[in-house]
Design a binder for these strands. Structure first.
Lengths: 331, 331
DNA sequence: TCTAATAATGCAAACGATTGTTTTTAAAAA
DNA sequence: TTTTTAAAAACAATCGTTTGCATTATTAGA
């Protein structure tokens, strides 16, 4: 590998002169700069980030820690953040944890070992750290240095919409990793509209979301008195419920309305495009980066949690209950 | 940040002794090792990868370059490789290119700047590089230092299966980024079975795969004499075609058979689980890493391309043509 | 108890860059 | 032409580790 030293000796210059020339330092004459840059290009010099880290004390690296990259939510977050940080001259270092706290600790240590300038952490929680960090995708949205959507509000809005279009028998299905806030939003919307909560219609299961959705969908929709709407804790559950309704030959949205949560790209391409609650990914990444950079330039400060309102996206999987075949309405 | 120097002075030892103690060097007495390690832990010492890179000349970093992480194929590849490299003590540095060659050049340079020990490159091509690399997800599978599936074989197998169960009018739909090999496999299978190729049934479009599948599916399935099977260049196209058939109320698989390609996780959770050609992701990542490490330990050698056979996964979207309602068979 | 052998630790150079300070060179003023 | 000043380049220390070699401490053998 070509080093600055090599260029210096070839050009009979001092390494400091070469270093400054390459970085356009004003002290160096234009003639020398030109000569050095051209020669560096010719011999294929590539600066060594490791070597420059030491005197500078930073390497413009930022870590992103997510639980599972296969989830479209996190790969979208990565894509957004990588783009935005790239524009600022930073390199994004991605780690995944498989939702495992032991792994989380390990990747935190790796990040520290890499002396990253900052950390963006999704899903996991951490109290404090010697370096700037932001949390995203959090259960609780109070406190500091967090960016998250208002899950409670999103679910409340979704369920309110269902109630407004005439639904009363509304089920809630999700997996154990879904934030409880969504369930609370569901409960509150029912309560505020004077609908009694039926605990048998609130289903939280451990397992693969699509399977939970499919199995519980089959079960609920086979009941004699079945729900007219199913609010899903996330889109994957929604995909499973959709499949169960199609399997049972129950028409969507005429006989059952389904709402998902997250607005994954796939939802709009499903056989029946899913009504869902959109997480504004671009805003989330934008605010996360904003806060992180403020903390990086202002290390002592804490920034109050940024709460973003999710948005109800109405597609084809929901309809007013008046459209339903009357025989299916038992309530 | 705590450094080795600090530990040395606190413990009244030389930095070299501390360094060796932390790395379990045999020259150091057990007593000193214990004392150093305990103190290091107590004060929260974290080794500086940048500092140790210099004398060692390596940092155990490997780059993975993929075009688009939002595609489940690439996020699965990342997940597999991150896991396997983590076990070997390497850190995986991920870059995406958005299918853009300019971006690709940039991330190659960033990788070199990070002095990675090796590169795993998906989709993009590169002739040679001063550091070890492997290509995956490649169009052409001859040559060296590549791991890829046999796309031709996969398509040939899929289409042969359709022919074996009685289909003759088989369409092919895909987007422009799909490797041509799949189309060739489709053509060869038809040819080898004495079925004339109808160029109107071979559709390659630019755009979002699901939309291509949906729009072209609608078009093909609305024809008076419509195909009895549609072979899709990838699963996303398949998802679109599935939607179009459901929209037109054409029964799958009774009235039309659909095959995808890749076996994305979602395919088995679709309302009609998709028959598809599986890319064995684990094998691909395993071989990629094997070749990369062989090259890293044996820099001059080149390794012949590793070709992996994909596997036909039969689900619910395909059926023998004999099951089809006779009135729809015109051929 | 003294010497030899070995174990344990310290010393110092090195990795490739950056940067404050000094020296040299060139240009401007006298 | 000489002196002063500014511009350009060189010098040298430094960042936090690693590692070959020298030195010191300890143990064993005579």
């Amino acid at each position: 590998m070509i080093t600055i030293k090599r260029i210096a000796s070839d050009l009979k210059l001092d390494i400091s002169t070469v270093s400054r020339a390459l970085r356009d330092d004003e002290k160096i004459s234009e003639k020398t700069k030109k000569k050095v840059k051209e020669y560096a290009k010719k011999v294929g010099y590539i600066p060594n980030i490791f070597a420059s880290y030491l005197p500078k004390g930073k390497a413009s690296l930022i870590s992103l820690i997510v639980p599972d990259l296969k989830h479209p939510y996190y790969s979208e977050i990565f894509t957004q953040i990588e783009k935005k940080l790239g524009d600022k001259g930073y390199i994004l270092q991605l780690f995944t944890t498989s939702f495992n706290e032991k792994n989380f600790e390990k990747v935190i240590e790796k990040s520290l070992s890499l002396r990253v300038s900052g950390l963006i952490i999704a899903y996991h929680k951490i109290e404090d750290l010697d370096i700037p960090f932001v949390l995203i995708d959090q259960e609780k949205i109070d406190g500091y240095d967090k960016v998250s959507i208002d899950n409670f509000y999103g679910a409340y809005e979704g369920v309110s919409y269902l109630i407004n279009i005439g639904h009363k028998k509304i089920a809630y299905i999700t997996d154990i990793y879904t934030t409880k806030e969504r369930e609370y939003g569901y409960r509150k919307a029912l309560k505020d509209n004077g609908i009694e909560i039926n605990e048998n219609l609130i289903i939280v299961r451990n397992g693969r979301c699509e399977e939970i959705g499919y199995n519980e969908g089959l079960r609920l929709l086979s009941m004699k008195i079945r729900p007219t709407a199913i609010f899903c804790g996330n889109d994957f559950v929604g995909i499973g419920v959709l499949k169960s309704a199609i399997k049972l030959n129950i028409k969507i949205p005429d006989q059952v309305s389904i709402i998902g949560f997250d607005d994954l790209p796939i939802t709009s391409y499903l056989p029946i495009p899913l009504t869902t609650i959109r997480q504004p990914m671009e805003e989330i990444s934008k605010f996360a980066i904003d806060i992180l950079f403020k903390k990086m330039n202002n290390s002592e400060k804490k920034f109050p949690a940024k709460i973003i309102k999710p948005q109800l996206i109405i597609r084809d999987s929901t309809a007013p209950i008046y459209n339903n075949e009357k025989k299916y309405i038992r309530n």
